[in-house]
Design a protein around this nucleic acid. Structure first.
Lengths: 196, 196
DNA sequence: TTTATAAAAGAATGAATATTCATTTATATT
DNA sequence: AATATAAATGAATATTCATTCTTTTATAAA
C-alpha cells in the first residue's frame, strides 16, 4: 500500500503556520492552504480531521516541542540562578531558531483556540517547574511567592523581549534586535527581583 | 434628517468584541454580528467601512482609551516609584473594569491586525513614557537600560498577571484571582529589579 | 509481477461569506 | 405640516468557504 508522505504533511503544516502568522486565523482557508502547500484540498483531510483539528494539532506540536527544548539539560534540583539561566537560554534558543513557530504559538496563546490546547497539554512540564520553584523557595534561593507571580516576573519579560526581536520592532514601531548582552542584562534584573 | 443611532453603533461594537473574545477573529462574521446586535447587515456598513475597518477602529478606540486611563494623574516628572505605582494602578483598574476590552486588545496585540493598529496610534503616549524613563535614569531612580528592556520588565509581568486574572485561570489551568496584595507584591519585585 | 490498500487528486457540493442595492423610515429643518 | 436627508432595512449578489465524492496513483506485501 501507499504510505503517507510526511514531506507533504510538513508542507501543509509549515504553510498553515506561515499563513496564520501573516494573515491571522481568518486568513487561513483550506483551499488557499492547499494551493500554497501544492496539494489537493482533500489531501489536508487525510492528515487532519478538519480545520480546527489542524490548528489545535499544530499548536500542540509546537507547545510540546517548546517544553521539551526548555527542559534540555534542566533539572528541578538545580540551583535557582543556574536553572533560570538555562530556562532563559533554552527558550530563547528555541524561539530564535523557530521565529514562525514563536509568532504562531503566541497568537494561539492569546486566542480562544488556546482553551482547547491547554487541556491537551502534558502535565510533566508544570510538575517539573513546580518542583523547581518550591525547592528554590525552600532553599531560600527564591523569595516566597505564588507560582503565577513567579511565572509573570520570571518569564513574561523574556517573552516580551523575544517578541519584539522576532517582529524586528518594539511596540512603538522602533526597530529592535535583541542581543546576548541585552538578554543577560534583563535576566540579571529578573534575578535581582526574585532572589531574597 | 435622521441621525446616527449611537446606541446601535455601541451594540455592534460590543457584540463584535464579545464574538472575537469568545470565538476568535474567524468567529466574527458580519451576518452573525448583525443578528447578535439586532441590526441589519447593511447597518454595520453605515458605521464602518468594511470588516477590516471595524476591527481596526475598535482596536484603536480601546488602545487609546487604555493609554488615556494609564495617564490619569500621571506626569513624566513624577518620582519613579510613584509613577510606576500609578501606571500599574491605572492599567489594572482599566483592565479589571473592562475585561472584554482587555481580552480583545491582547488578542489584537498578538495578531497581524496589530500592524495596522500600531501605525495609527498616537505618539503622545510613547513620548510621555519616554520622558518618564529618561528622567528616572538621569535622577538615578532607575537603572540605565534600553526602553524595550524597561518595558518588558516593568509591564509584561503586570499584563501576564491580569490576563490570568481575567481568564480566571493561570496558564496551567489552575483557578486564579489577582488581589490587591498580590499585585503590590509583584510591583515590589519589579521595583526591586529596576531600582539602582 | 500481481494484488491489495491507502494516499492523493480534482471536481463538485451546499452552506456561509462580505458587501451592495433598492426601498422604507425617522427626524431636523423649513 | 411639509420636505429633505441620511439612517436603517431586508433581500439579493457573487464569491469563497469547509468538506466530501469518485477516481487515479503509488507502493508494500504476496
Amino acid at each position: 500500500m501507499r504510505l503517507k508522505d510526511d514531506n507533504k504533511k510538513e508542507r501543509i503544516r509549515n504553510k498553515a503556520i506561515e499563513m496564520i502568522v501573516h494573515h491571522g486565523f481568518d486568513g487561513l482557508s483550506m483551499q488557499k492552504l492547499a494551493k500554497a502547500a501544492g496539494v489537493s484540498p482533500a489531501t489536508i483531510y487525510i492528515h487532519y480531521k478538519d480545520r480546527d483539528d489542524l490548528i489545535v494539532t499544530i499548536s500542540l506540536e509546537i507547545a510540546n516541542r517548546l517544553f521539551e527544548s526548555s527542559l534540555l539539560n534542566f533539572s528541578p534540583d538545580m540551583n535557582f540562578e543556574e536553572g533560570m539561566r538555562l530556562q532563559w537560554k533554552n527558550r530563547a534558543n528555541f524561539f530564535i531558531a523557530h521565529p514562525m513557530d514563536m509568532l504562531f504559538i503566541e497568537q494561539v496563546r492569546y486566542s480562544p483556540v488556546y482553551e482547547k490546547v491547554r487541556e491537551m497539554l502534558g502535565q510533566n512540564f508544570k510538575e517539573i517547574m513546580g518542583r523547581f520553584v518550591n525547592k528554590a523557595i525552600a532553599n531560600s534561593q527564591l523569595v516566597p511567592l505564588p507560582f503565577e507571580v513567579y511565572w509573570s516576573v520570571a518569564f513574561a519579560p523574556l517573552y516580551q523581549l523575544i517578541k519584539f526581536h522576532t517582529q524586528g520592532k518594539s511596540y512603538t514601531g522602533k526597530n529592535f534586535t535583541l542581543d546576548e548582552a541585552m538578554m543577560e542584562q534583563t535576566l540579571q534584573l529578573v534575578l535581582k527581583a526574585l532572589k531574597p
